[in-house]
Simulated scan of single mutants.
Amino acid sequence: MAIRNPVDLKADLPRGRRLLGIDLGTKTIGLALSDALLMGATPLSTIKRTKFTKDAEELFKVIDAREVGGLVLGLPVEMSGEEGKRAQSTRQFAANILAIRDMPLCFWDERLSTAAVERVMIEDFDMSRKKRAEKIDSHAAAFILQGVLDVIGRG
């Protein structure tokens, strides 16, 4: 399946299936899950990165267990709007995933997502640095996924 525009993603999603938001880091992969109505995103878990094969295996376990029908992958665009090495690496990760399993996927500009989530964790929830470190990646994935869900909801 081709990489989709967020607006077109809903049409390609099998009925009743959820979206999985992914914040792909160099050390961890943050995951978030949509509800079946595609209205809200909830932080789910974090996968500790090792090798691609093992990372993909863990990712597909979540996809199968949670009835996921499509993926939203945060794209780390630089502040200038340019795509650097991290964005290229993310695009390659997506291509490798789609080579294993054909499913709808879209990218979402993740600029400042981690910073925004961290600010909320500090200002609104007064979370310690240790607690933030444990939760930041899955919450950033939820932030990314919610952006796509908001676009889908508008039409």
Rank of each mutant, 00 (worst) to 15 (best):
1 M>I: 13
2 A>M: 07
2 A>G: 05
3 I>H: 00
4 R>W: 09
5 N>K: 04
5 N>L: 12
5 N>I: 12
6 P>I: 13
6 P>S: 10
6 P>E: 06
9 L>V: 10
10 K>D: 05
10 K>P: 04
11 A>Y: 09
12 D>K: 01
14 P>I: 12
16 G>P: 09
16 G>E: 08
17 R>F: 15
18 R>Q: 08
21 G>E: 05
23 D>C: 10
24 L>S: 01
24 L>I: 08
28 T>K: 00
28 T>S: 06
28 T>D: 03
29 I>H: 00
30 G>F: 05
30 G>A: 05
32 A>Y: 05
32 A>F: 10
32 A>N: 01
34 S>H: 05
36 A>H: 03
39 M>N: 02
40 G>C: 02
40 G>W: 03
43 P>C: 07
43 P>S: 05
43 P>T: 03
44 L>M: 04
46 T>A: 10
46 T>N: 04
47 I>F: 06
49 R>D: 11
49 R>H: 11
49 R>P: 11
50 T>A: 12
50 T>V: 12
51 K>G: 13
52 F>M: 03
53 T>M: 09
54 K>M: 11
54 K>S: 12
55 D>P: 03
56 A>V: 09
57 E>D: 13
57 E>A: 14
57 E>C: 07
57 E>P: 04
58 E>C: 12
58 E>R: 03
60 F>E: 03
61 K>H: 14
61 K>E: 15
63 I>Y: 04
65 A>H: 02
66 R>G: 06
68 V>A: 07
68 V>F: 11
69 G>R: 00
70 G>T: 11
70 G>F: 13
71 L>W: 08
73 L>G: 05
76 P>H: 08
77 V>Q: 01
77 V>H: 01
77 V>D: 02
78 E>L: 15
81 G>R: 00
82 E>A: 15
82 E>V: 14
83 E>W: 10
83 E>T: 09
83 E>K: 04
84 G>W: 11
87 A>S: 13
90 T>W: 03
90 T>M: 05
91 R>I: 15
92 Q>E: 15
93 F>Y: 07
95 A>H: 09
96 N>K: 08
98 L>Y: 09
101 R>Y: 13
104 P>D: 07
105 L>S: 04
105 L>Y: 06
106 C>W: 02
109 D>C: 13
109 D>T: 10
109 D>S: 10
112 L>D: 08
113 S>T: 14
114 T>G: 07
114 T>R: 01
115 A>Q: 07
116 A>I: 06
116 A>D: 10
116 A>W: 01
118 E>V: 13
119 R>A: 15
121 M>Y: 11
123 E>I: 14
123 E>C: 10
123 E>K: 05
124 D>K: 03
124 D>G: 07
127 M>T: 07
127 M>D: 04
129 R>Q: 13
131 K>T: 15
131 K>E: 15
131 K>A: 15
134 E>Q: 13
135 K>Q: 13
136 I>S: 02
136 I>F: 06
136 I>T: 06
138 S>E: 12
139 H>G: 05
141 A>M: 06
142 A>D: 02
143 F>D: 01
146 Q>H: 03
146 Q>E: 06
148 V>M: 03
149 L>F: 09
149 L>Q: 00
152 I>A: 04
152 I>Y: 04
152 I>Q: 00
153 G>W: 09
154 R>S: 12
